[in-house]
Design a protein around this nucleic acid. Structure first.
Lengths: 110, 110
DNA sequence: ATAGTATGCCTACCGGTTCTAGGCATACAC
DNA sequence: GTGTATGCCTAGAACCGGTAGGCATACTAT
């Protein structure tokens, strides 16, 4: 039982992945690194969470994937955000904002 | 498929319940109402979520319960926050803050 | 009176999501 | 040539919240 980083809340992973991809197409492994970097090392996604999530997300039409060769000459599966994905991201961000607002109100209530 | 309120993210319910009880002992049904009121009607907890959660929370020693009679003369099970519960609430609030901060950074990242 | 609504508690099951823990392959550095 | 980083994947466990039911009592309106 070691000290562990703040675990994600269930339901936030999709938003984070879509957000990472909103900065440009990327392969799976890179998504993990980009999320870590974008969050100032505060968030680290496990591979075992990421790949199934990417699969789900592609099934829902929010991203498309294509095997390509990256800059270091390795094969990797690149994911690109679709229009529907962008809309989904906006919806999830709005939903996130609503929840944060609600919790803030809870905090301030007497 | 009507417009539905923001669903909770999994992992936040305990914090909300503990927060509601931090304003004073209360019975289960009242917790639902107090959360709704504290959040300006933004959050509504289902009974089927609440009662199992209260049981879990009591097992963990964060609250104690006692059957009493409320002001309208009905029997109800009153829950009181323990010291451990208060500590847990603080921990969960801190964890929430960390996550909100991390997501905020994600949002701002370019 | 009695039907409906609000209060109050509970349980069984479903569905979704993340993590743990493995496996496999290639490239690069020491 | 052994270890580490990159890159992909799957199976199963664990957890959590919601849905949908059931039950009982009190008050309210017809």
């Amino acid at each position: 039982m070691t000290q562990h980083k703040a675990d994600l809340l269930q339901g936030t992973l999709d938003m984070l992945i879509l957000k990472a991809l909103s900065l440009g197409a990327l392969h799976g492994y890179g998504v993990i690194q980009r999320i870590r970097q974008m969050s100032d090392e505060m968030l680290s996604i496990e591979q075992g969470s990421l790949y199934p999530a990417l699969y789900r997300i592609e099934q829902k039409g929010w991203v498309t994937s294509k095997w390509e060769t990256n800059e270091t000459g390795r094969r990797a599966k690149f994911y690109t955000l679709t229009k529907a994905g962008r809309r989904q991201l906006e919806a999830e961000e709005a939903s996130w904002d609503r929840l944060v607002l609600a919790v803030t109100k809870m905090r301030q209530a007497t």
